[in-house]
Simulated assay, not measured.
Amino acid sequence: MNRTLTWAATAALALSPLAFTATSTAAPAAHAKAKATAYSVTAKASTDTAIAKETTVKVKGRVTPKAAGQKVVLQQRVGTKKKWTATGEAKVKNNGTYKLTDKPSTPGSREYRVLKPASNGFAKGLSKPVQVEVYRWEKLANRQAVATNVGIAGVNIGAEYYGSSLATTTAGTPSSIEYTLGRKCTSMRATYALTDESVTGAIGTVKVSGDGTTLVDHALAVGTIVADETTDLTGVFRLKIDATTSAAPTAATVAVGTPEVLCTR
């Protein structure tokens, strides 16, 4: 009789609502715990702007749990691309921090993120993306000119050769050239002078303006060289360069030696 009662009690317990509830909630609880076991990764870039082939971007952050000695992977994507590409890796330090570096070679907007692969029972972790705008120095003369009566050629200034330069073609005749930068450039660097072929007594002027605002204004004579001057072009849509020379002597040429602009895509 006692044995029969014991079996009945066991069966009743197995079919009770309480037993069913405990069983049905076990799976979601385990699932929630699995979600919480991914690595946490933070990332911060050393700069939000960089110059292609010049600036080394440093990406630093922390991995939690620390995962000392294990690797983290630097990933990046450029422009509107959807695919992330691995471009470097480093080991996590004993305190959980890491440092990765990248030296971009092309201009444009790019994003970096850091991946900690799965290990030790923890799922992989990804940092939030950080954005860096990359600029590149390019020769102004290689861009499409809007309107011009200025020559593009190599010139000699102070016994040095400057390729891809802008130069007046007719003494005494005002000259100008324009370029559309589209507010994608931040600086220009150039050398301003009369060329070595200009005769003694020749004079000239050169003026650079952005959207009608004068940015550069130099009076020039033989022997006057304004070398490697950098000009801020932030926000400039249309760049214009005006130059004049004295009508006599006729051998007078104003030159903008190898002008370069720092631009992104």
Rank of each mutant, 00 (worst) to 15 (best):
M1D: 13
M1W: 13
T6K: 12
T10N: 04
A22F: 12
S24R: 06
T25L: 12
A26L: 13
A29H: 04
A30R: 13
I51Y: 07
A52M: 12
V59Q: 05
V59R: 03
G61D: 09
Q75E: 15
Q76F: 12
Q76H: 12
E89V: 02
E89T: 14
V92F: 07
K93E: 12
T97A: 12
Y98V: 07
T101Y: 06
K103W: 04
K103E: 11
K103P: 02
T106L: 09
G108Q: 07
R113F: 07
P117T: 10
A123T: 10
K124I: 02
K124D: 11
S127N: 09
P129G: 07
P129V: 08
V130P: 05
V132K: 07
A141M: 08
R143A: 10
G154T: 12
E160Q: 15
Y162H: 09
S164H: 11
S165R: 03
A167S: 07
T168R: 02
A171P: 06
E178T: 13
C185Q: 00
T191V: 05
E197N: 07
S198P: 03
I203L: 06
V208E: 03
G212H: 01
T214Q: 05
A221G: 14
V226M: 04
A227K: 15
E229G: 02
T231K: 00
T231S: 02
L233Y: 04
T234A: 11
L239T: 00
L239N: 01
I241R: 00
D242H: 05
D242W: 00
A248V: 13
G257Y: 03
